[in-house]
Design a protein around this nucleic acid. Structure first.
Lengths: 215, 215
DNA sequence: TTTTATTTGCGTATTTCTTACGCATTGCAC
DNA sequence: GTGCAATGCGTAAGAAATACGCAAATAAAA
């Protein structure tokens, strides 16, 4: 590679994270409001440019922390966005990360110097976003649907235990269809990913239900 | 992003393709011999640096063509290699592409100005490669194993039709285990991905077998 | 207070998919 | 010819997915 060739100049790398959470059976995505050029004032996915001495995973966590105060997320790459014109100033390669976390485990979302606002948005009410971030969100959701049964990606969602009815809501919402509650329970218990904690929880208007830990 | 900040300077993007083919029931990977710095004289995956006005998919096909003469491969990103020190000169982000093609559909492999040699290597006899390309190959193979049953990735392997015994060899080799020939046939026919062509083919030493098209 | 509706949780029957394996036929090697 | 491996069809047992009945808990409506 000839470093003096202008064809190789002015390329950057963007990392962005589509951070999902589940709230009352609704799927939310974390967005931040941009306060600098380009796309000032528009909502966007948390993320930013990677330093030249920085691993992309580290960059993703650094940008997430800087813009929202959230630390150490174990996210996975779900896609790469390689269109050279996806950013206006210069070529920015886009790396899309995805994770699902427990919102209540985050004490607060920090609105840093770098953002005017940060908040969770229902997946059905996402505004027009900066860059190609709307496309990123929909691709991430597709990926989530494919991955939801083969585990892993939901482990961090309920660090303090979960009931089967709660999991039922999450799966139904992600997959966009109503599963049979009785067969859903059977499959989960059969898959040996739930550990009985001997505890129960009682929500208003419902029967009390057992709390499990996801292994 | 502050373009004058040295933290953002000297970043490049590498695309590399792990191009698999199947030969006599063996899995081969296409490698090229480097003839310029760094790693002169060492074998490597086809690929190279992305131009700043170029889509990454286009860059992958351009580099593949320049170095081997192979055109228009429909490859998928299987992983991103984001370690900032994976290339010696400067930070090069690595994008790993994967595809499986029919070797016989390629008239010849061109040894261009840019490479001293280009050849297929059996997956069990891959030499020490440039950069982190050995890791790329093994990650691509993992990805291939995961994806082999849910179709798509093998479609281009047999453009002129295929027999079930031929597919049996491919699947067995990729998955690294001997499947039951009779159940393998049943599953393929049941999955409705094979279209009977009413033709048969006869290989020396074997019974004649039906030719199917993969849909 | 009684009734009604909803939710959790367990059980059972049916169907579909996977796995194991028997066997006739073809074709090469000897 | 005999022997052996490959193709291709079939059947049976086992595992997994699906459909649905039903009892107990609970809250809200009558």
């Amino acid at each position: 590679m000839d470093l003096s060739n202008p064809l190789y100049k002015n390329q950057g790398i963007h990392v962005n994270i589509v951070l999902f959470t589940v709230n009352n059976g609704e799927i939310d995505v974390l967005l931040v409001k941009r306060n600098n050029q380009p796309f000032v004032g528009q909502w966007a996915l948390p993320g930013g440019a990677v330093y030249n001495n920085e691993d992309t995973n580290d960059a993703m966590n650094r940008e997430l922390f800087e813009k929202t105060g959230i630390k150490n997320i174990d996210a996975k790459v779900f896609s790469v966005f390689g269109n050279p014109n996806r950013a206006p100033q210069m070529r920015m390669l886009g790396i899309g990360y995805i994770a699902v976390i427990d919102k209540s485990a985050i004490s607060f979302i920090r609105k840093s110097q770098k953002t005017d606002d940060a908040d969770w948005f229902n997946i059905d009410e996402i505004p027009q976003l900066a860059y190609d971030h709307n496309e990123m969100v929909s691709k991430a959701l597709e990926y989530l649907k494919q991955q939801v049964w083969q585990g892993g990606i939901l482990k961090t969602l309920f660090p303090n235990g979960v009931t089967i009815p709660e999991l039922y809501e999450v799966y139904s919402k992600i997959l966009g269809q109503n599963l049979d509650r009785r067969n859903f329970r059977k499959k989960l218990l059969n898959d040996n990913i739930l550990q009985d904690t001997e505890q129960v929880v009682k929500y208003k208007g419902k029967k009390s239900s057992k709390i499990y830990k996801i292994i």
